[in-house]
Each structure stands twice: as C-alpha cells, then as structure tokens.
C-alpha cells in the first residue's frame, strides 16, 4: 500500500515538474504576450495541483496536509485571477494579440 502511494506520489511530482518546465519554455519561446500568458498560466495551475497533491500523498493525514490544501486553494484562486487581470489590463491598454493584428493588417489572408 505504501509502495503504491509512493509510486503514485513520485509520478505526480515528476509529471508536475515536467509541466512546470514546459510552462517556463512556453513563456520564453512563444511569439506574443497572450500566447506566453497562456503557456505560463495553464501550466502554473496544473503544475501546482500535481506537485501539491504529490507532496500531500507523502505527508499523509497531518497538519501539513491541511496547510497544503489551503495553499492549493489560495493558488487556484489567485493565480488565474492575476492572469485574467493582467490580460485585461494589457488588452485595454491597446496591446493586441499578434494574430489579430496580422489579420487586421491584411484581411485577404
């Protein structure tokens, strides 16, 4: 049973690490602000869920697990909200997505 939990937890942790790293790559490699934001925010969410659940399996039923649940809830609330706020601020200030401006310049395409 504990071996099963261990394997599951290690799997979640390493998967979370992979997602986090992919998000970092996306934030550097993507062509414009909105695609970068997309890469960073989505992997942030899934990466945090996977890593924190993975750690939770290691912690077992304890105060630490309770704290981890709270941290996860806070992260799930704040991180997407921050991205939303940032994206709307950028859009209002006239920072258009690259794809939209391409189409806007040349409607024939």
């Amino acid at each position: 049973m504990s071996l099963l939990l261990d394997v599951l937890s290690w799997g979640l942790l390493s998967l979370g690490g992979v997602f986090v790293f992919i998000g970092g790559l996306g934030a550097v490699r993507m062509p414009d602000l909105y695609t970068r934001m997309h890469a960073a925010s989505l992997t942030d969410t899934i990466g945090s869920i996977l890593i924190i659940v993975g750690v939770m399996l290691q912690a077992g039923a304890s105060l630490a697990t309770l704290k981890l649940i709270m941290i996860l809830i806070f992260l799930l609330l704040t991180s997407p909200t921050a991205t939303n706020a940032l994206a709307s601020a950028a859009l209002i200030s006239g920072n258009l997505p690259k794809v939209a401006t391409q189409y806007g310049k040349d409607p024939s395409q």
Binding site: F74, L77, T78, T81, N84, A85
Partner: peptide, 9 residues
C-alpha cells in the same frame, strides 16, 4: 473578477 477574489482573500 479581481474584486471578488480579493474580497475573499
């Protein structure tokens, strides 16, 4: 959206 989340926090 920020306002709702913020008020919760």
């Amino acid at each position: 959206i920020p306002r709702l989340t913020g008020r919760l926090l």
